[in-house]
Design a protein around this nucleic acid. Sequence first.
DNA 1: GTCTATAAGCAGATAGAC
DNA 2: GTCTATCTGCTTATAGAC
Lengths: 194, 194
Amino acid sequence: MKTSANTSERLIESTRELLWERGYVGTSPKAIQQRAGAGQGSMYHHFDGKPALALAAISRTAEEMRAAIDAQFAAPGTAVERISAYLRRERDVLKGCPLGRLTQDPDVMADATLRRPVEETFAWLRTRLTDVLAEGAARGELSGALDPAATASAIVAVLQGGYVLARAANSTTPFTEAVNGALGLLTAQAATQD
Amino acid sequence: MKTSANTSERLIESTRELLWERGYVGTSPKAIQQRAGAGQGSMYHHFDGKPALALAAISRTAEEMRAAIDAQFAAPGTAVERISAYLRRERDVLKGCPLGRLTQDPDVMADATLRRPVEETFAWLRTRLTDVLAEGAARGELSGALDPAATASAIVAVLQGGYVLARAANSTTPFTEAVNGALGLLTAQAATQD
DNA sequence: GTCTATAAGCAGATAGAC
DNA sequence: GTCTATCTGCTTATAGAC
């Protein structure tokens, strides 16, 4: 058995990086090959073409993101504590969300196969966060007046929008501010609970 | 004087549409010419090249957005009412924000000239919203415990992130939910005020 | 599995005629 | 102002040798 990363593996990882940095439309097979140190023929031997390679890359990114979030939410603590930890965990803010950015890519959104992992992951995340919030409401940590699903969507949107603001400003400040603002609102309404 | 739209005008408008639909990297001079009904030579007569045309398009979009938001915030009403009206105004949700999407474009962000209108518009928007929130706090409509700047960033982020979620889901639902969630939090904390 | 050759078409212009 | 010709290099492969 081989211990070093094989060519197929390097191609997938290179594609993941380039999709994150430049998007699908901005990434050429040639750029992938160069980053992976693989030749033209080698790439087309392992994958049918750019869409197939992108699907492998996007699927892996989606899986990793899901696993990371699952671990985060499974940690002990109140709903607000776990959400706070999730929002404040270390991130490469200026690079943005590797999945969220694909949402702006016309060729990804136009291809049902490429689109599916993106769609499913965000749907799953919103559901997962809704559960955490509903749990918090059931325990009396949060106001029952809040709609858990709406609040969950707002929180995920703050994250995704925070990336947008950070990139626009070329600074992590607006991202941090947005997260603080969201948590400020969440704890301010919790103060209503007494 | 001419009354019909001239070629230069049509080129700018076509570029604006394409930047919105496909981004800078995904838009070719040829596509712009075809949409504008202009020839190659015609385009290069009026503009130095793709970056110059994009700058004209992006600048105009930024100006329009700023004027629209200014009008929105100048309307009468409490801080929460004006913010609610802003968040809930009619939008082409699935198309996303024409300026926010450029944030994901590597070639726009790498070019200081193209980047500036995007950066300035979002900086201005956050400041403007911060003023509205500070005003609300001064009037006693909102809790003084909230940081106006952080809350403003969170609200703008909800909007930008709402677009991302809507595109991921291919549905306006998550956008509406996120807006409702944000307004829910804002009014819930206002309930603390008594 | 990897390499080189080949190819139709697009990207992003420049040059000069009209 | 607009048009056609021309150009270099990239895109996204396919074919076949090694």
